[in-house]
């Protein structure tokens, strides 16, 4: 006999999946200016796109490894090193394509959901 799954759990699972696919788009679109991890979380959160710390920081590294982002350490106030990320040329190209894809998808899905 299978254990019944709660609707809330299923909803949370699919919401997470939906958001997970969009994080890259959200992150890339906010890194035309150099930002450090925490400020990016605050910025995205301020716009209603909450991202977990454990998700964002490793994601920034993965995007950097895939050459979509570049980073540099900057020491502020002589004591405070921070790692700043900004979008690379490859990242900008990918972002443009992803944005186009996103707009197309939204249009298509609006038709599907009607």
């Amino acid at each position: 006999m299978t254990t019944p799954i709660k609707i809330e759990d299923l909803l949370e699972l699919y919401q997470q999946e939906l958001r997970r696919g969009l994080i890259v788009l959200a992150v890339l679109s906010h890194l035309d200016q150099p930002e450090y991890g925490y400020s990016l979380i605050k910025q995205l959160g301020g716009k209603g796109f909450e991202v977990d710390q454990g998700t964002l920081y490793p994601l920034l590294r993965r995007l950097e490894e895939r050459s979509l982002l570049e980073s540099e350490w900057v020491v502020e106030d002589d004591t405070r090193p921070r790692k700043y990320y900004h979008i690379s040329t490859t990242g900008t190209l990918v972002l443009t394509k992803l944005k186009e894809e996103w707009h197309t998808l939204v249009k298509v899905l609006e038709g599907v959901l009607e």
């Binding site: 925490y38 400020s39 920081y57």
Partner: peptide, 20 residues
């Protein structure tokens, strides 16, 4: 190979979170 850099970044992120 990634350890040192990630440790440094975590340290910096924690300080930011505390300040905030």
């Amino acid at each position: 190979r990634k350890r040192k850099d990630i440790e440094l970044e975590i340290l910096s992120l924690l300080e930011d979170a505390l300040e905030d």
